[in-house]
Computed example of a mutant assay.
Amino acid sequence: DWIYIPIPVDEYTMQHRGFNQVEGLIGDLPYSRVLKMKKIRRDKKQSEKSRSERLKTQQPFEYIGDKLQGNYVIIDDVYTTGRTLYYAQELLLKNGASRVCSVTLAR
């Protein structure tokens, strides 16, 4: 069995959009919210950053769940550099996940 992990959105996005688009993509699949965006001063939107700026981004997530067991699928809406998925995978593996895969809607 696989457990789905949506990439979280930051507070600014949640306040302005009102929903997490990745959770909307998941639909009725069971998922777990074990990742949370760190409070980071936002100078630019991700979409406004160059590739090199995105690659320099520090770990944007914190882990907020219990010890993990089993296999996980990270789900994100857009894959640009892979940095977001890398950071999410790093935290899941560090917290006990056996295996981590990812799915994105667009590249």
Rank of each mutant, 00 (worst) to 15 (best):
V9N: 03
D10L: 04
Y12V: 12
Y12C: 08
T13C: 09
R17L: 14
G18D: 05
G18Y: 03
F19T: 07
Q21K: 10
E23W: 00
G24P: 03
G27I: 10
G27W: 09
D28F: 06
Y31I: 02
R33L: 13
R33Y: 09
L35V: 08
M37E: 02
K38Q: 08
K39E: 11
R42K: 15
D43P: 06
K44Y: 09
E48G: 12
E48T: 09
S50K: 12
E53W: 07
E53C: 07
F61N: 11
F61M: 09
E62L: 12
E62M: 14
Y63R: 10
I64E: 15
G70D: 08
Y72T: 06
I75Y: 01
I75N: 01
D76Y: 00
D76A: 00
D77M: 04
V78P: 00
Y79D: 02
T80E: 04
G82Q: 01
G82V: 02
T84A: 01
T84D: 00
L85G: 02
Y86R: 10
Q89R: 12
E90I: 09
L91A: 07
K94M: 10
K94H: 09
N95D: 15
G96L: 06
C101W: 14
V103I: 15
V103L: 12
T104V: 12
L105E: 13
L105G: 10
